[in-house]
Design a protein around this nucleic acid. Structure first.
Lengths: 222, 222
DNA sequence: GTCAATAATATTGTATACAAGAAGCCATGG
DNA sequence: CCATGGCTTCTTGTATACAATATTATTGAC
């Protein structure tokens, strides 16, 4: 059932996963023949996969000079968090107005899993639970196009979001923010829900900025 | 200087233009060999172009079944206008805070051209002037990532935006909305600017919905 | 010893050839 | 007369070959 994908599509997904999770580092060169050999295919599907990733912004292709994994500067990333905040605020605001009983259940249970994950102290588990929670929020907006936009950007920020979760006390703060979002949604308070969601993401951007700053000062001290 | 593009890239741009302007109709089949013949190249660059357009959402590719121009249902389009409204509100709000003297000049002069175009009664001329105006607004936000997102979505809505301009009195209304946006920006009033921009786009979505509805009732009456 | 120019190499961009799957068509059976 | 099965044909997906450009190394001159 899931084996109907073309090798180009499989390649694209595999590469995307490796880039998004940081297995392939930003700035790394993506050589067509090496990739072709690694995946046991010819250069043709490799090229297709690379071009598709380029359209998604994950890799950059310079004519006649090959592809590299996109390097996101700290300020670009912060900007991406800005836009993510706005989109998510919109989604959550809509969710406050439009959510069904099923949506409510999904959100609450995703949040419960987040709590369990937080208590367990397993950051990765929290990461996945968090992802499911946000997905439930998007779904409750019942706004198909917005959902795709949110998912796309969310995915691009995946690796960095994960990083930012390692900041001290971030997980418990995140959890509290989730709670306030849920409260606003269940009260059908659109404005409040949107505001909470926006703050939730903006905070992530800020923490991420802090992280970058501290890394920079560390590097400078060496 | 501009001739450094690969044939695949040229093809992609040409096809994008034809789709966006409606020369190729939604739902139309895009046959690889026909396109290859038409542009005098082999299938390889055609495939690359199609896949890139697919990532951008302009065409849909079904495995082993070829590519067609994406058909956007009325409700999807309205949703896209929703998101556009939110992004543009964000950009204009930022522009109110961040605009420079140069930005101010660019915006005002773009608006002046809009006025002249409106007075001339040339809808196409107004369309292009309008595009330049919005671009000037985006630029004034000084938010690189937001600008790319706005441009991308704006481009996808291009054909439909044009359609909606034909609605009676829409051009003069649009012009008035522009004026209110400018006023808010020049007053450095972020909230007001964002609200005006949001309304400006939401109205477009609504007018577009009206248009669709009237087309539907026309079709039903036949 | 360093810089520059040219040649050698490697890598991308395009074309063509081949393989595999999907759509249409005709024939045959009910 | 309609439906179903197999066959033909067309189209897409992949591989390989070739062409063009960028990179690198080597050699020569200053």
């Amino acid at each position: 059932m899931t084996k109907e994908l073309s090798s180009a599509a499989k390649l694209r997904d595999a590469l995307e996963e490796e880039i998004v999770t940081g297995q392939i580092l930003p700035g790394a060169r993506l050589d067509e023949v090496s990739l072709a050999e690694r995946f046991g295919v010819s250069r043709t599907p490799v090229r297709e996969a690379l071009h598709q990733l380029a359209s998604a912004g994950l890799v950059e292709i310079q004519p006649r000079r090959g592809a590299t994994v996109t390097e996101l500067h700290a300020d670009t990333l912060v900007e991406m968090f800005d836009v993510m905040a706005e989109l998510e605020a919109m989604a959550v605001g809509l969710a406050a107005r439009r959510h069904t009983e099923a949506d409510k259940k999904a959100i609450v249970s995703a949040h419960a899993e987040c709590k369990r994950a937080a208590k367990s102290g397993d950051v990765d588990r929290y990461y996945y639970a968090n992802e499911a929670f946000h997905d439930a929020l998007y779904a409750a907006s019942h706004h198909a196009f917005l959902i795709t936009q949110c998912r796309q950007l969310h995915r691009r920020l995946k690796a960095y979001r994960r990083l930012q979760l390692r900041v001290r006390h971030r997980v418990s703060a995140s959890l509290a923010e989730h709670q306030s979002i849920i409260d606003a949604i269940l009260a059908f308070d659109q404005a409040q829900a949107a505001a909470c969601a926006r703050r939730h993401i903006v905070v992530q951007g800020e923490r991420f900025g802090d992280l970058i700053a501290s890394l920079k000062s560390l590097a400078a001290a060496e």
